[in-house]
């Protein structure tokens, strides 16, 4: 389990987190749900270690590897699809292992035919699928997804969601999933934290079950949030 204990973080005069506590269960998908600017990304980046904290401590991440699906694909546009995934695997796997891993993940996101395409030639949805394949191909323990389906139309969003669940089921890891889309939150997560205020507070911790009535109830709860 990852534990954030008494974390404080401010940007200039803006106090985003004050004595903030939260845990993320191992190999579960935990959603941070809340309005834009509340500090969801900051919490995730603190876990990933790319944002320094002013006070507090982060437990349960010793020697963890992270992968990240950002809002935008963040691919290297001078490389092709295959090389973009290879780029993050080079320091971790041997060359022949890499070929196998990359091909299998490209297959999973249905981009095998496009592996030699430059990133510029891809549509937004395809580029984000590469980013998803990159995140799963990397042997991370913790995967952070920061509004990864933002800006995609509903059809693509649903495709991406089921793709994500398929990949997660075949290679489970701790996921921190950030969104302010109610449907996405309910469909993909095991646990939902609803966040509000500044400095941020956890308003609710919801465990999502598979019972349909229950889902409706959670939906109403999130919408009223």
């Amino acid at each position: 389990m990852i534990k954030l204990i008494d974390i404080s973080k401010k940007y200039d005069d803006l106090i985003l987190l004050k004595d903030f506590n939260i845990d993320f269960e191992k190999n579960k998908i935990t959603c941070l749900f809340g309005p834009s600017g509340v500090g969801k990304t900051t919490i995730a980046n603190i876990v990933a270690g790319i944002v320094p904290i002013d006070k507090g401590c982060v437990g349960g991440i010793d020697n963890s590897l992270f992968s990240y699906v950002f809002q935008e694909p963040r691919l290297l546009k001078w490389y092709n699809v295959y090389e973009n995934i290879d780029f993050v695997l080079k320091d971790v796997y041997k060359p022949d292992e890499r070929v196998e891993i990359i091909n299998s993940y490209l297959n999973m996101v249905e981009l095998s035919e496009y592996k030699n395409y430059k990133v510029d030639a891809l549509s937004g949805g395809m580029a984000q699928r590469v980013s998803l394949a990159r995140a799963f191909a990397y042997p991370s323990h913790i995967l952070i997804m920061d509004e990864p389906f933002k800006g995609l139309d509903n059809k693509l969003k649903n495709e991406m969601s089921s793709l994500f669940l398929k990949m997660w089921n075949s290679s489970k890891r701790t996921v921190i999933f950030i969104t302010h889309d109610v449907e996405e939150a309910i469909d993909l997560s095991h646990i939902i934290f609803t966040l509000k205020n500044r400095p941020v507070n956890i308003i609710n911790r919801i465990t999502v079950s598979n019972i349909v009535n229950d889902k409706e109830e959670i939906k109403n709860l999130l919408l009223s949030h």
């Binding site: 590897l65 992270f66 992968s67 990240y68 935008e72 963040r74 993050v88 320091d91 952070i144």
Partner: peptide
């Protein structure tokens, strides 16, 4: 944003220079 991506994936500095900065 690309540098942040490299940081998350723990890419070696020499490769960040040759594959990101240089390009």
């Amino acid at each position: 944003k690309l540098l942040q991506m490299c940081e998350v994936y723990k890419i070696k500095k020499s490769r960040v220079i040759s594959s990101v900065y240089l390009y």
